[in-house]
Design a binder for these strands. Structure first.
Lengths: 250, 250
DNA sequence: CCGCCGCTTTGATGCAGATCAACTCTCATG
DNA sequence: CATGAGAGTTGATCTGCATCAAAGCGGCGG
């Protein structure tokens, strides 16, 4: 199993002067391109719980998460829902060449997105191949993440699913730097029980129960509503069912 | 829900003279590029059941399925397995820029792959942007397929899973043309019960049972070992849980 | 300060699918 | 023709998670 590049990259250092700081366009940004981007971009804010677009609705922009968390979900006729994408800051949403959104896009927390009007963005892609290359890399990363996620959905137990999700968030959370001196890990779990259940293919009751169990066993500590502390990350990792080394994606 | 382009495209008509006929490189092939490709390509054949590469092993080529079916699977330490990719003819395997395979790649049937040595292929990608563009489109298709698959794994019942898989294969199978006059659909189901169970996140016993039920209900008819007839495709579609129109991916 | 609303936790019960086990069918091989 | 191996079917039983139901717990507006 190869590790792909971690999703949270120090792009802001690579590219300090870039006001958008999106991985899709900033890997090798040049002034001229940035000026083009400036003209076609706009910001949109959403409150937690708001819907950005519904599946099937027109979506005439692509976008990148600036702050907050967005989710992509699919809904079946009878209301069963499955999350299929979790977008953290710097992640990209929308498909060039597609008119409508294939998924419900929802703000899991308060959310700011940087949007680019689709048509000019596509034109820009044609002119500047490195944007397309970057997008390919990102899409391949997404695909690897989706495949890891499929293993979780298809074969893991509820307990393993919960442990996996917590580890995934912990690893991706930028506040990773808050890792305390003694190896304990403290961060925000910015998802409701319901959102977690949609991610994991479980019911929210099962999520709650398994969280309680992990808490009783001391594998996790909860502080307040959303704050989580992992006293011993490696011990929690063992509960994910992943082999110790691999499973690094997302 | 937008329909993406169907995966089986008439590329052989688009591009008759192209000896590889792979979607990644043939969309707008030009003689010069084809000559470059000729130099770096080679064919490999596998028997049903053979492993192409193991997860973690060196994989110094990318490849495209010529005939047969290949699968990508992940295995957990204790042996639980989940299929995460099903590659039919013209599908692409391998990630530019990655040294080793992230998944077990296995021949589900007898298989012929057209391989391109990775390094020169990457060089070619840099020189000819349309290959990268094509690869991006294909990867986005794969991602959509993976997300549809996630809904299946996370939220569908065993019955719905089976019906979905049969519909997916039926739609993608090139022998779709074998559709008989009266709307019945006849084709090969080239997967063992075990492979189906790995695809669906079930046990092979459950797959077998549900197949029997669908058979008894007349939704499918089996002829011999692998041949399947769907007397009424729309009726089977209703059993997938997908909304009638959408869910077209893969 | 009270009461309500959204979120979470916990309990009791039921069931879909897993597990364990036996048997059948079909070839391929000597 | 017997033999055996691999694939598929079917049955009995078990169990992990879903479902249904009710009660805790903040936090915010009145």
């Amino acid at each position: 199993m190869t590790r792909t590049t971690p999703k949270i990259q120090p792009y802001s250092q690579e590219c300090k002067e870039c006001p958008i700081r999106h991985r899709a366009v900033c890997a090798r940004c040049e002034t001229e391109e940035l000026e083009s981007l400036e003209k076609i971009k706009f910001y949109r804010s959403f409150e937690a719980g708001q819907t950005v677009v519904w599946a099937g609705d027109k979506m005439d922009f692509v976008a990148s998460v600036v702050t907050g968390i967005a989710t992509l979900s699919q809904t079946m006729e009878d209301g069963r829902r499955q999350m299929v994408g979790l977008l953290l800051p710097s992640d990209f949403a929308g498909r060039p060449g597609r008119e409508t959104s294939a998924y419900d896009v929802t703000a899991a927390t308060d959310l700011v997105m940087c949007c680019f009007r689709k048509k000019p963005f596509e034109d820009l892609m044609l002119k500047t191949p490195h944007i397309g290359q970057r997008l390919l890399e990102m899409t391949l990363d997404e695909l690897d993440a989706a495949r890891e996620w499929m293993l979780l959905l298809g074969r893991k137990t509820a307990r393993e699913k919960i442990a996996s999700l917590i580890c995934i968030i912990a690893r991706r959370d930028a506040s990773l730097q808050l890792r305390a001196s003694d190896g304990e890990l403290r961060f925000d779990l910015p998802l409701t029980r319901e959102a977690m259940s949609e991610y994991l293919g479980l019911t929210l009751e099962t999520v709650s129960r398994q969280m309680s169990i992990l808490r009783k066993e001391g594998l996790i500590v909860t502080e307040g509503k959303r704050q989580i502390v992992i006293p011993d990350f490696d011990r929690l990792l063992e509960e994910t069912g992943d082999d110790s080394d691999g499973g690094f994606l997302v």
